[in-house]
Design a protein around this nucleic acid. Structure first.
Lengths: 146, 146
DNA sequence: CTACGTATTGAAAATGGTTTTCAATATCAA
DNA sequence: TTGATATTGAAAACCATTTTCAATACGTAG
C-alpha cells in the first residue's frame, strides 16, 4: 500500500472544497487492501464486514471520487459492470481476460504502446488514454478444455 | 452490401431451427445500409421510418441474433451503450475514439496484432478476440481546442 | 470551544439501457 | 390447410448505477 494514499485523497478533497469523512477513509483502506479489478458491489461487500453501516451509494460515490482524485482507474470490461483498480502512478498495463473462468492477467508492452502512438499520429489524433483487452482462454482453461 | 447477407442469415436461422421473418430481413437491410457503430436505438429509429410497426424489442433481439450469426460485431465503448457494426469476414480493425465529439475512426495495424500474439503466447493464453481503443482528441477537436 | 452553514450519508426511489413477459400473430412442416 | 410453436409488439421487469431527501457530520468563523 502506497504510504500516503489517504493523504493524497485528503489533499484532493481539500483542494476541491470537499470534506474528509470516516466513510471515505474506510472505503479507501479496504479498496487498497483488496484485490484488483473490484466492482462496486464487491467492494461494498468487503467494506460491509468491518463497517456494517456504510451504504451502497457511498461506495459508488467514493469510487468515482477516487477515480477523479487519480487514485483509481475505472474500467468497463465486457461483463457489463464497471470495475476499479488501485492506480500506482507509474504503472500502466493492459489485460488478458479469460472468457471461461474470468481470470484477469495484466501485462505491459512498450512496443505496442509505441505503435499506438504511430497510429494516432497518422490520424492527427492525440491519445489521452487507451484500452487493450485480449479475450480468450487462459493456460489453465486450455488444459481443462480437452 | 455483401451479396448474400440475407441468405447468410437465413442459413443460420434454418440451421438453428429458427424462422425467417420479414422483420428480421427488414432490420438486416437497414442495418447494412446504415453507417457503422450503430446503437440499438439508432437502428430502431432508422428502421422505424420505412417500417413503422416494428417494435423496439425486435430490434434488440435481431441485433443479438446478427451477432450470433456472425453478421455483426457487438462492442461496448465507454459511453455506456452497446454498438453493433456490420462484419465483413476478413476485416478486423480497432478504434480511435474522440472524447470530445464522439467521432470514431477505424484503423488496422498488423504489427500491433503480432505483438499481441507474442504477449498471449508468453502467458500461455489463446486469444479469441481483442479490443483496442485509443481515447483522445481527433484532429478537428484539437484545432478547435485552442 | 461552540455554533452554524453546508457537504455527506444511508435508504429508498428513480434512471436508463436492455431483457423478459404474454397474448396475438406468423412461419413452416406435415 | 392445419397445427405446433417461433416470433412479434407493447408493456412490464431487470439491474447496475445515480439521484433524492431528510438526518447527520465536518470544519471554519467567531
Amino acid at each position: 500500500m502506497r504510504k500516503n494514499a489517504v493523504e493524497q485523497l485528503s489533499e484532493y478533497l481539500a483542494g476541491q472544497g470537499l470534506r474528509s469523512t470516516t466513510q471515505r477513509d474506510q472505503i479507501l483502506q479496504v479498496f487498497i487492501s483488496a484485490g484488483r479489478h473490484l466492482s462496486a458491489e464487491e467492494l461494498y461487500l468487503r467494506v460491509k464486514k468491518p463497517h456494517p453501516n456504510i451504504g451502497y451509494a457511498t461506495v459508488y460515490r467514493t469510487l468515482k471520487l477516487l477515480a477523479e482524485a487519480g487514485l483509481a482507474d475505472e474500467r468497463r470490461f465486457e461483463d457489463g459492470f464497471t470495475r476499479y483498480e488501485y492506480k500506482a502512478s507509474d504503472d500502466h498495463h493492459d489485460h488478458l481476460i479469460c472468457t471461461k473462468c474470468g481470470a484477469i492477467i495484466e501485462f505491459e508492452n512498450e512496443r505496442i504502446e509505441a505503435l499506438q502512438q504511430d497510429v494516432a499520429r497518422k490520424n492527427h489524433f492525440l491519445v489521452q488514454n487507451h484500452k487493450l483487452e485480449l479475450y480468450g482462454l487462459c493456460g489453465d482453461c486450455r488444459k481443462k478444455d480437452r
